[in-house]
Design a protein around this nucleic acid. Structure first.
Length: 263
DNA sequence: ACCTAAACCTGGGCGC
DNA sequence: TGCGCCCAGGTTTAGG
């Protein structure tokens, strides 16, 4: 599923493809991804808009338009932005110059939004921001009594981390996912902050994780799935201690960890 | 304000 | 080959 590294990979590919182009029209094959306004109003508003830039905020892509308005896309779980169509295309953006950008989404969890001014998205700080220090992480996590794993997934508190990278960061930091967020030591907040940064940067470098659905705008898989240490590895040996990786459910999500290495 | 759980969705994988 | 069942999970919504 597209988390921060996957969305960033797509943004870097799509930006040069659309920058300076005008959206001449939109074909709506399935309207269910369009949120907040009716499909017909969306069509009218988007037609003729020139794209200046794409900004990424957490898992959102903000298409900055010359009019000062914004097209905002969230890929949900199975959403894709593609240069060539696949069998799950729901929306087609026709661009000046004859190119098309395809929005594909098998499960229709993705969201397409339109804002007349800069979008308010209610997101917590991004872990890759320069001022996201371990003290900042401690300040945020100290507010919560629930498990550290679930808190990492709360986009209003910290934005951009999804299930894969929450599992991977906790493994790298040696922290058990069921530990209470407000009960870590300073050394553990420090290790966790470093682990989050490291895993996100490494995943961007490898162009994201294609555990199942994710592909980039060219339809190509990422490379980070081969570097996952716990996610999806239930019953397999831990790379650090050779013990078995365990899977439990937390908040309706698969949670993978090594009981020996994560305390 | 915080926390939990259900709901939204459907392709893919599995057992039979 | 095909049917039924279960699983995947980001975000919103509802309710405690």
């Amino acid at each position: 599923m597209p988390e921060l590294p996957e969305v960033e990979t797509i943004r870097r590919e799509v930006l040069p493809y659309v920058k300076g182009k005008t959206i001449t029209g939109v074909e709506i094959i399935d309207p269910r991804n369009i949120k907040g306004i009716s499909p017909s109003v969306f069509k009218k508003k988007i037609a003729g808009q020139k794209i200046l830039d794409i900004e990424r905020k957490a898992k959102y892509q903000l298409f900055k338009l010359a009019s000062g308005k914004y097209l905002v896309i969230h890929l949900g779980m199975t959403g894709r932005l593609l240069f060539e169509p696949d069998k799950y295309v729901k929306i087609v953006f026709n661009l000046s110059g004859g190119k098309k950008l395809f929005f594909s989404d098998a499960r229709i969890f993705g969201r397409i939004l339109f804002f007349d001014s800069y979008p308010k998205l209610e997101l917590g700080p991004e872990p890759l921001a320069a001022d996201f220090t371990w003290q900042k992480l401690k300040e945020l996590l100290s507010k919560r009594k629930t498990s550290v794993k679930l808190v990492l997934l709360d986009q209003k508190l910290i934005s951009g981390i999804g299930n894969i990278y929450a599992n991977e960061a906790l493994f790298r930091a040696g922290i058990h996912p069921q530990r209470k967020a407000n009960q870590l030591s300073d050394a553990e907040y420090k290790k966790l902050q470093q682990a989050i940064r490291e895993v996100l940067l490494e995943a961007i470098k490898y162009r994201g994780t294609s555990d199942n659905w994710y592909v980039d705008a060219k339809g190509q898989k990422g490379g980070f799935q081969e570097r996952l240490r716990v996610y999806g590895r239930k019953g397999e040996p831990c790379y650090r201690c050779k013990g078995k990786v365990v899977r439990i459910g937390m908040g309706q999500r698969g949670t993978f960890f090594c009981p020996k290495c994560q305390k």
